[in-house]
Design a protein around this nucleic acid. Structure first.
Lengths: 216, 216
DNA sequence: ATTATAATTATACAGTTGCATAATTGTAGG
DNA sequence: CCTACAATTATGCAACTGTATAATTATAAT
């Protein structure tokens, strides 16, 4: 009679780690950092709290890993559709902006998550490094899309100019992203991407709004 | 001999309340919401913890009051210099943008504070109401400045257009504000206001960068 | 089947948290 | 001067926190 109801299952390390990270992220999104206690995380991941210590040397270690995971995912979600777009540079830029200002990138949970981490970012060096890294990745990606679009219309820009344009466009996208996440019902469904396209277009001096509708 | 060293002093209610709020804000700015425990707040305000309960019915009550106080101050700091400017509408708008992108409005503590509150904002109705209120105040202020500037150069805009422009400009300013606060050493001292002016100018189609230097 | 071992659970602990309640004490009005 | 009362301190408590350590148990290799 070996029918003892098995009390737990062993999972591959990476899978468990990610499950714990996901549990952590969902808790922070819902209740902020304070809601992410080891016990709450363990419960949400259907695991006992001791296991967290087995995979992460401390709670801070888990938080750091979760932050890295979230920021990477955010950047990837925004970049992916534009990366697969091989039409014109302008359209690629437009796709990037539109994606970054549409669900699921724009989402209360995402914004809450980002905000929840921010004060740790300013206090902890490791967090600061991750923040700087992901910010630069995102902005560099945007800068190269802008450079391509400007070349395409025959108005290339100097490196210094490109830097300024990238910072500005990044700010518009970030700002709209935040507002959309923080006030989900304050904007029409298509309003944010439209405003984003018009603004980025105005800043770099290239028309972007009419491009999106066309079928290849 | 009535020289017993007086153990405490009675302060007017409003003054004590504000002292407690200031202590709360400085703690959240430095360490996030988690650092703002009743004991830490009391100590920073040079008071014992029981007193907090005497002025605020709960910790949440204090946090809410602190949030309201901070957001009001942020909006006021940004608006004040532009309000006292009676030259041209364009200059007033430029002053508004510049002020919002310069110290002390741009400041790691301010951003940290704002972020620390955000997840509470999404969860708590009272906080949500305060957030919506201050956001609208700020954006409406910006919208009226934009409207004046456009009228001044003879290109008035429709209400719907004005709304879009205000949302976009608000996003630029907010985005730059955040980036400046989150990465204090990533930008040159004058870089953010310059980029802000150029971007807002580009979005609404009015030159703003050359105005600031002129002496009346 | 047995065994070795890592994955997982179980238990314990000292410190911290928000809050309630009681005990003081400054101070304005008589 | 003193008296009343609110402002403030003092003390206590139950719940929760992160972490350490020991006890189980699934599972792959033998």
């Amino acid at each position: 009679m070996s029918d003892h109801a098995t009390k737990f299952k062993r999972e591959p390390a990476e899978q468990r780690k990610e499950a714990l990270i996901q549990a952590t992220l969902s808790l922070i999104a819902e209740q902020g950092l304070q809601g992410a206690t080891v016990r709450a995380i363990a419960e949400r991941a259907s695991v006992t709290q001791g296991l967290i210590r087995h995979y992460f040397s401390s709670k801070e270690d888990l938080i750091t890993a979760a932050y890295d995971f979230h920021m990477r995912r955010l950047t990837d979600m925004t970049s992916a559709p534009a990366d697969g777009d091989y039409s014109t540079a302008r359209l690629r830029l437009a796709t990037f902006v539109t994606t970054g200002l549409t669900h699921p990138v724009v989402d209360p949970g995402s914004v809450s998550l980002w905000a929840g981490f921010l004060n740790k970012v300013l206090a902890d060096d490791k967090m600061q490094a991750i923040h700087e890294q992901t910010y630069r990745d995102f902005r560099d990606r945007l800068e190269s899309l802008i450079a391509d679009a400007l070349n395409e219309v025959g108005i290339p820009a100097s490196p210094a100019e490109l830097r300024r344009l990238a910072i500005a466009c990044n700010a518009v996208v970030d700002g709209l992203w935040m507002e959309g996440g923080a006030l989900p019902y304050a904007f029409e469904p298509d309003e944010l991407p439209k405003i984003g396209l018009a603004s980025v277009g105005a800043i770099i001096g290239v028309e972007l709004t009419d491009l999106e509708q066309r079928q290849t």
